[in-house]
Amino acid sequence: MDVIAEAVELIRNATCPGDYDQAWELVGKATEDRETAAERGFALVRSPDPAERKIGCDLLGNVAQVEESVRERVLLAVLELIATETEPAVHASIARTLGCTGDERAVPELLRLAEHADEDVRFYVAWSLPLGCEDDDAVIEALIRLTADPEDEVRDWATFALGTQCQADGSAIREALWARVGDQDTEAREEAIAGLARRRDRRVVPHAARLLDDGGFSPNTLTAIACLGDPALVPYLEDFEEDEGIAAALGECDPASRAARDAFAAGLAEALHARMPELDFGVYGEICEPGLTLAACGDKYHWSIERLRDRVSGDPVRAAELVAEGLPQTGSPGAAA
């Protein structure tokens, strides 16, 4: 029996969560041969057997994640399937596969599945729904509802999607995140704190300090703390052995370090203007991301101010030379430093 048939058999006769886990491992193994996995997946999603349809969706989702060329066909196949599908287990695989396509045409179906009675379906909707959330109020509203889901895993992922993957801001988003700051689930609570920190909500500083004090935080939380950039967090950060994440957070939270970075950015702007007065450039920061970015030529080229500064040991004139070398009129086209 091949691994795909074995996975189908496990799903067909599943009696415990471990059977689904084993089937998922077999799907992952089968996807190592992407061409065969896609071929079998497209055939299985048309099967009358729900176990085969589920495994077919899982195969197509895995392939779509890594093969952009197949995503359009996967999307259309899954949209055709969902029109008649009634099995919750298949709906869960559909929701995940729609997210794997990265296609905003999947959003209407995901929104419909967001109200599904099955918690696995709602989980994969939360996993997938950041698609288009910058411009789609309906997506944000669905994520907000899912952050209050009765199931811990659904709340956790929806809070991560809303707080970190989604760059939108507003009172409804912040209220939803604040509602999770006291969540019984540790991971949902941390995601809420990170989401508020990314939006530079100073009220979350004591909660961020407690996370640092407890020591149980993720790299995502450190990035959020860097966005927050509050001096009150410096003593907590200094307690840790410095790595890239700690250094970045310290650089944003320590007023002296941030002032030195800002002075370098100002010096770089002066040096660029002196060297290339005709250059269209600007320095900006994103509300939900730490650090500063230099953009030039209508936002076509980008450099991290912090990385430029490190490369030139703080010399803005040398940094301007590197930028000039990366522009098409003075050298080969450049990208982020």
Rank of each mutant, 00 (worst) to 15 (best):
I4E: 07
A7W: 12
A7E: 00
V8H: 04
E9G: 05
L10E: 11
L10Q: 08
I11D: 00
R12A: 13
D19V: 02
Y20C: 01
Q22S: 13
A23N: 12
A30W: 03
A30N: 11
V45K: 04
D49N: 15
R53E: 01
R53D: 06
I55A: 02
G56D: 09
L59M: 07
L60T: 05
V63F: 07
A64I: 00
Q65W: 07
E68M: 11
L79E: 15
E87N: 13
A92F: 06
S93G: 14
A95D: 04
R96K: 14
A106I: 06
P108V: 03
E109M: 07
D118Q: 08
V125P: 01
A126R: 02
P130K: 06
D135L: 08
D136S: 15
V139R: 02
I140C: 09
L143I: 06
D149K: 04
E151L: 03
E153C: 04
D156V: 01
L162R: 03
A176S: 14
A179T: 13
A179H: 12
A179S: 15
V181E: 01
E191W: 13
D201M: 06
D201G: 00
V205R: 04
P206V: 02
A209V: 07
L212F: 09
C227T: 09
L228T: 04
D239R: 15
F240K: 14
D243C: 03
G245T: 02
I246H: 13
E252L: 09
S257T: 10
A260W: 07
D262R: 14
L272S: 10
P277L: 10
P277R: 02
G282D: 14
E289H: 06
G291S: 08
L292W: 12
L294I: 08
A295W: 12
A296N: 11
G298F: 09
Y301R: 15
S304Y: 12
E306M: 00
R307K: 13
D310G: 01
V312K: 05
S313V: 01
D315I: 07
V317H: 02
A319H: 02
E321V: 07
E325V: 00
L327E: 09
P328T: 13
Q329P: 14
G334C: 07
G334K: 13
G334I: 06
